[in-house]
Every structure is written in structure tokens, then in C-alpha cells.
Write a protein that binds this DNA or RNA. Sequence first.
DNA 1: AGCCGGACATGACAAACGTCACAACGCTTT
DNA 2: AAAGCGTTGTGACGTTTGTCATGTCCGGCT
Lengths: 209, 209
Amino acid sequence: MTTAKSANPIRVLLAEDQTMLRGALAALLDLESDITVIAQATNGSEALKLARLHNPDVIVTDIEMPEKTGLELAADLKLTDSKARVIILTTFARPGYLRRALDNGARGYLLKERPASELAEAIRRVHSGLRAVDPALAVEAWSADEDPLSDRERQILQRAGDGRSSAEIAAELRLSEGTVRNYLSEAIAKLGAANRIDAARIARTRGWL
Amino acid sequence: MTTAKSANPIRVLLAEDQTMLRGALAALLDLESDITVIAQATNGSEALKLARLHNPDVIVTDIEMPEKTGLELAADLKLTDSKARVIILTTFARPGYLRRALDNGARGYLLKERPASELAEAIRRVHSGLRAVDPALAVEAWSADEDPLSDRERQILQRAGDGRSSAEIAAELRLSEGTVRNYLSEAIAKLGAANRIDAARIARTRGWL
DNA sequence: AGCCGGACATGACAAACGTCACAACGCTTT
DNA sequence: AAAGCGTTGTGACGTTTGTCATGTCCGGCT
């Protein structure tokens, strides 16, 4: 049983590392008469290669993937002559992610907790030049705070949240131990956290890490 | 377009909190002539209620869901007179999870990184009385270590990994602060970790938290 | 030229953390 | 009955962490 395609279907590239979801979505999208999935990638780098090769109309991509994230993929595509429009499809309703996605030129931002039917709709909207951003999230993002962390603070907080001690972090980054403690103290204060673990947790849930 | 069902299709209950995946899988499974999805749940408690109501042949469930996890669901079903067979469908290839799943009476354990076609196959196997455990993971689980943590240790390590201080944990659990420190010290030693954060991380990746 | 913010450093102090030894109690297992 | 384990506690000790004041250096903005 093959679904008849219209003369000029929307050509979609799917990038998602979870095979089961990728396969299921590809199958569902292919049931739509005006959409055809021309290629699938399991990470950002592969998606970039396939995008160059096939020149899709729309790229639907997850964020958290090995090799290269969907956000990095969007950024790289902006530097290319690709005319593909990007839709981010992710689990995470983090204002920080949405902001970065839009900054990197994405046209859509859709959550995996939405019904699958919305994906096809988003693809059509984006293909026709419109945007497709989850409305609830868009509102939240508007009122959401900026990332208050400097690069150094983020870098150090990441490692601290992974269980490294101040001394280890200092050695790795060629800093004095006191400096590392200062950065952590700063980060803890900025985030209103009780300690480094709490700070790392908060930063992660906001999409700042 | 409706797919013709055989006379006695396998009646499946799907429990998965991510709507997009749940919808896509339900749609795909319904395309199989010998399988019909009779109900869908977004968390473990709901699944339990629907299982009582509809008496499905097979329950396919995620692990990490709000309200009640898939592992808890499996445990609860064992206490019921339900004859439904449980298949765990999860992102996590953690031996600890697999072990708990089998202890709780699950008949199948499948990873989301496998192709969707394997899910239908697993449903058929399990329905006919066989098991369906991801082969690669089964091997790993065989050589995997037991969870060395006691309930108290696990309970305390969870909170510590969330950024709570020893004093806070002590107050919450009505223990002396010294006792909390002792448990954490024990857990850190057992896991070969450098500190509480490291210990929480290690325990989590092994599926012990 | 002057100002500001980020990166980096030091020293000092209090609080939190991690370790160890020791001890008591109750519940299984042998 | 004895041994073993999990739970709970105390006291003491050294280390790590978090805070603060203070200072230098550099690059960008006005």
C-alpha cells in the first residue's frame, strides 16, 4: 500500500537519534500526501551532510543528539547556501533553548509532548514561509530571564555539576583553586542556589548549561 | 482508510508520557492486522486503571513517567489478577532497570533506539508466551553488578544528588546530621566515587537511583 | 583618557563535608 | 546462641567548599 504523492510534495529531512521515534514519525509523515521524507539522520553532522546532498525543503531535528546538536546544526546551516527551513523538535520546554533556536535561524520549535498531527501541520506552515512555535512556550520565553552566566562560569559549573572538585577543575582549566571557588560562588549567587549542585541543577533546567 | 483486523487481534494498552511518540506508535501498531491498540495512558496510575477496565493482552510501557513509573506499574500488576503481559519500552540500557523489570514480572524489555518494527515483533512474541529482551542488553546485565546500596542509602543519595545539604536531609528524614553523613560516606565508598555528587551520578547511570 | 566589566589571583574565615572509631538495637540466617 | 547486616547515634579530625575583601590586567565603550 503506497500513498499517492502530489506532484510537488514537501521534501523533508528527519534528524533524530532515537530510532523508534524517527522511524515512527517518518512512517506517519509519509502517509501525508503532500509530504515525503527523503532522508533520515541519527545526528547533527550526518544531517548536515545529507542536507547538502539532497537539498530538502524542511529539516525536522531533535536538539540533544551525539556529534552535533540540533541547535548547532541550525547555526551551521545558516552559514551555508542551504534554503532549507529548520524545525526543532524536542522534549525540552526550555526558554533558553527556544531563544537559541530562533537566534540560529530556526523557523519552528515544537515539543514532543504535542500530538504527532501537529508536526505535519508545522511542516506545512514553515514550508509556506510562516513560523511554527509552540504558543505556550513562546509566551513563557518572552517573560523568561536571560542567561546570567559568563562563559567561564558556565564552563566551571558544568564540571562541578559532574562531581569534579574545585582542585580538579582548577587543574583541568589551568586556574588557581581560589579562582574556581570564586566563579562557583558567583554562579551560586546569580542563580539563587544553595550550593554548586543546586546551581548546576537550576542552570540545567533553564537550558543554560 | 482502515486496516482490516483479524478475528482475534492482540489487544494492546500503550503507556508513554510523550504524546508524539505514543501517538506515532499507536498509529503504526494499528496498521498491523493482528494488533489493535485499545487504550492509551500518559502515566503509570492511569495505565493501571485502564488495565483493570479493558483487560488488555499486552501492556507496552515506558519507565520514566509521572505519577507511577513503568517498573512500579509492573509490580502493581503482579499483585492484581490481571493476565496482561508487560513489555518495558525505554531509552535506558541500564542493567539495573532490566533486572528490576524482570523481578517485577515484565516479559519484555525493549529499547527506544531499536527500529519500530521490533516492537510489533516483541508484542507477538510476548503474547504467545515467549520473552522479548534486547539481546545486547541481556548479555550486559548478566555480567553487571548488583545494586550495593541499601534503601536508606539510596533515599539519602537521591536527595544529596538534588543539591540538599546534610542538615536538610536530616531534618526531612528525622535523622541526626551525623547519621546522614555516615550514609553518604558509605555510599561514596561503595560506589568508588569522589564525593556525593559523583556518587549520585554513578548510581543514576547504573539505574540504581 | 577614563570607566567598566570580565578574567584571574590571594588570603582569611566559617560552614559544610568526608572519614573513622566506636557503640547500641533489632531482625535474619546459620 | 552466635554471627551478620542494616539502622541509628556520637565525637573527633582533617579537608573541601562558600564567602568576602582586595587587587591586577586587559579590552571595549563613551
